[in-house]
Amino acid sequence: MNSKMIFNTKYRQLLEFVVEAIIRISGYSAVVFVGLIFLFLMQESLPTFGEIQARDLWSQRWYPIENYFGVLPLLSGSLIITLGAALIAIPFGLMTAIFIAEIAPLWLREILKPLVEVLGGVPSVVLGFLGITVLAPLVREELYLPTGLTAFTGAVLLAGMAIPTIVSVAEDALDAVPKAYRDAALALGATRWQTIWRVTLPAARSGVLTATMLGIGRAIGETMTVMMVTGNAPQMASGLGSLFISLRTMTATIAAEMGEVANGSLHYHVLFSIGLILFLISLTVNITASAVLFRARKRTERLLS
């Protein structure tokens, strides 16, 4: 038994085959899992539509223990909180990324980037706890609101969770823009700001867009933090003014109520329908993002050829 015998050609071929199969299976598995999740959601949520009418789902009262299953307050709550988070996180995140990639000196950059990534690793329940004890009283006192447990509090914390993702991915994209672009712009007499705004940022736009989408995706799916700080009142949100009242999100509803329902009850199916809505929303966000990216890439190719 020596090593020459073990590693003969046949054995290598077998190994090659096995490794290739493993890699292939992992590659396909993502697609298969998404498909299975979708099928499962469909299977568990479809009975909803046999038991209550779409009109009842599309109404404004959510009170499941007395069979009021209007999902509009939850849907609008999720959307407005995510929008609020995006409005805070995108400008702030992009500016931070630009600062780290383009302006900060090397030593500062080497401190800042890992720090931002550590911020991204803070568990959401810890942020929620900070939100309850520190941010909520602050919001109530500074904005003269009746309570600090509002959609705005949730949006600020979600922005805090999305920013590390946005900064990290956008910074990588900006960093990948060839130095020659910047040199050329500067040589043409552009100021530093003009270089950043007109050359570097557009050149990195696909990465920047991905960063934004990943950040928003993190915000809309987040559960624990919003459940702790948004007050969970199922009120209709209409417009940005609703950021300053308590709202209930779809994720928090599923988390708070899924434990309570009996398997196969109407409430159970409705909660799965909400899960399906969330799934479709994130699917739409992702597809839109890749469509935009695809178009952008094609245009660049046209310009370059």
């Binding site: 309850i132 109530r140 309570t147 447990l149 459940m227 007050g231």
Partner: peptide, 22 residues
């Protein structure tokens, strides 16, 4: 019903802590 603006908190502790500061 409870008014739609009623905050629904997931725990007894959540209620006590919000009331003690608000």
């Amino acid at each position: 019903f409870f008014s739609p603006g009623t905050l629904l908190l997931p725990s007894s502790e959540g209620i006590t802590s919000e009331i003690s500061q608000n």
